[in-house]
Nucleic acid binder design. Sequence first.
DNA 1: AATGAATGAGCATTCATTCAT
DNA 2: TATGAATGAATGCTCATTCAT
Lengths: 222, 222, 222, 222
Amino acid sequence: MARPAASAERNDAQSESRRKYDPEQTKRNILEVATAEFSAMGLAGARVDAIAERTNTTKRMLYYYFGSKEGLYEAVLDKVYGDIRALELDLHIDELDPTDGLRRLVEFTFDYHDRHRDFVRLVTIENIHGAKYIERLKTFRSRNASAIRTIEDLLARGVASGAFRDDIDPIDLHLLISSMCFHRVGNRHTFGAAFGRDPSHPRLRARHREMVVDATLRFVKK
Amino acid sequence: MARPAASAERNDAQSESRRKYDPEQTKRNILEVATAEFSAMGLAGARVDAIAERTNTTKRMLYYYFGSKEGLYEAVLDKVYGDIRALELDLHIDELDPTDGLRRLVEFTFDYHDRHRDFVRLVTIENIHGAKYIERLKTFRSRNASAIRTIEDLLARGVASGAFRDDIDPIDLHLLISSMCFHRVGNRHTFGAAFGRDPSHPRLRARHREMVVDATLRFVKK
Amino acid sequence: MARPAASAERNDAQSESRRKYDPEQTKRNILEVATAEFSAMGLAGARVDAIAERTNTTKRMLYYYFGSKEGLYEAVLDKVYGDIRALELDLHIDELDPTDGLRRLVEFTFDYHDRHRDFVRLVTIENIHGAKYIERLKTFRSRNASAIRTIEDLLARGVASGAFRDDIDPIDLHLLISSMCFHRVGNRHTFGAAFGRDPSHPRLRARHREMVVDATLRFVKK
Amino acid sequence: MARPAASAERNDAQSESRRKYDPEQTKRNILEVATAEFSAMGLAGARVDAIAERTNTTKRMLYYYFGSKEGLYEAVLDKVYGDIRALELDLHIDELDPTDGLRRLVEFTFDYHDRHRDFVRLVTIENIHGAKYIERLKTFRSRNASAIRTIEDLLARGVASGAFRDDIDPIDLHLLISSMCFHRVGNRHTFGAAFGRDPSHPRLRARHREMVVDATLRFVKK
DNA sequence: AATGAATGAGCATTCATTCAT
DNA sequence: TATGAATGAATGCTCATTCAT
């Protein structure tokens, strides 16, 4: 899960594996395991011992690097929230016409949630805690601003071209898209229990993807 | 939540509150407090002692009636899930024309989620646990079937009258509506943290309500 | 288990079964169930709830008649110790010649232990508690005296007839016989685990019976 | 019980007692205290808190090393059962002639039970639990086999020399000896209560020791 | 005589965290 | 940098017993 995309670290990958003590590697390892545990069990349900056990190091190191269970949880949140926004920047939506751009953004959002259940679960968990941990992350707010700017730009261009309505709030639209992409992943278990359908089944997923795109475009279209 | 007494008990409602031994009252009291605690803290985060403390009885009674922490959690789920489906039946949507009926169903769904944060949180929590507790509840599946039947009927009538598209799956539509109603409540904390907006603010709520109805109708309309 | 031998109660057995409230029947029922529970679980391990559940009455009655868990345990002890001594009196050993009498006494002792595992277990349990409950039973000591008197008489007659040694203490002999009869029942589980043999198997029991008689007679013979 | 340190640790025995972190010492200490508690109170009657209190460490360490109350109880059983069989091997009974060897074995068995009341009580307790804990100990069965082999050898040599009967089963003989040695220790409280005699009184003990040897030899002799 | 409801004290166990090496 | 050992404060749960009816 969540292997580092970073190129800078790849260069000394060989020497790394030979080193006996590698703080960065140790931290990454802890974070990876912790992400799985927190996302699976929640903050209260997660066990520090369980995390430490599946790590290459000991419990002590976990405290050495992250200070506390909560500190580790925050670090996990930080990493996981960072990933999605970083990818959004790579989409080059501004190079597409408004409708295609919006379609692409929705599809990306849909796919990202579909593939990153850990992210979805952690957001869910964070909401149970009133988002108090995520508020501590300094970069959090600015990151989201960029997502809104993308939508703002799309809407402006769509309105200008006469394709879109002119009464849509970009944050509202973001919420609408998020809702449809998030819910079916985050609540797939109760959904499955209620209707005997697994929303992550390929056929259903494809249909849902179409539906979300369709509903979004119909909503913004003039 | 937990309205006082049903019809049969109505007569001695006054004397009831004075009685020292009243199992139903005791159970209701425990359930009420437990709903708040579980919804606020999650299953793992909830403390049996905390629940007992805010109860009129002792911790022992909690085990006397519900067997275990998990048993109590299941009882809470049962009660909370039962409430929404019961209300849906009172809407008499079948008496309205398809468009008005669908609008009414969406508004009801929106309002219910908006007003019952406990319900939303508990569903969220249940999903963290893979829905394993709700699956134990026998009545769960049949309850949801009735919700789908309502939508099915609406769609059929809308298609017949030429107002709606004929390629919409009722469960998909249910998912779409749920998504938009659920997400803004369940994830309102991270949403607020990200965009500095509280989605439960009256003005925003009214706008979201309109948006959800609008998006739904545009989606089904021919 | 342990039906009452008493004749006085037999007369109104019919009317008894018709009566709605029958204290004696209730007490007997409780005692029977309690004997099984205490002998199976020990004093600390026994559960008042478990006893009450298997009874025809409720937990309250158990306290009504026996005062406490310990009181009930004492009552069980009293009943169970009373049974064996009562039977010993029926043997008419004094009518047999010393060797035959001794053989008969040993066989009776062997058979009694073999058939009354509850008795053996309760004695065992009582010893774990330093015999403090049995000491409270007034009749206990006098009952045992009669058992010794039987042996004393046997030994005296055997010595007189020249069949037995004259240096044997009757209490020592009682201990010797008890040891051999008690141990194989009381410790049959560890014995079975250690040697893969179940000492209650019919063939083994017969052989042990022979052995105990043989060892006893060889010990007292001149 | 629990003799200080084995050979390897001998050198720093002094510094050891000063060390704050000494797992072996900690474990030994817990085991020692637990042996006393379990043997005095039984498995159900024993209190984890009571054990912890009399220890040099905390309750937590008890779980750290032994996992659970039952795990600790098993560890106690293992230690206590291991001790007796180990000592038996030191007797060099095979170097004595059959009669002297048997006498020596009986005396050793008598003395061991007489001196190790904890062992006797724990066996008793284990039988109340159907020997289910001791069956989990892997070494248990093989340990007992060696005890039987000793008796087998004695009997064979005695039969060969014409001193012993040839119809005695070694396990039966083991049971006979155990019975006489075990019972007077395990049931000394009820015995004392019944006859006003304490079987552990020196004079009585000496007489019983003679009696057991005598009864055994008379039983096997031709 | 009989009962379901109620209780406080206690019980085994777990947890996040820190210490000594 | 790294680690096994150690800990105090809870945590979920049970028990023998009593109350109100």
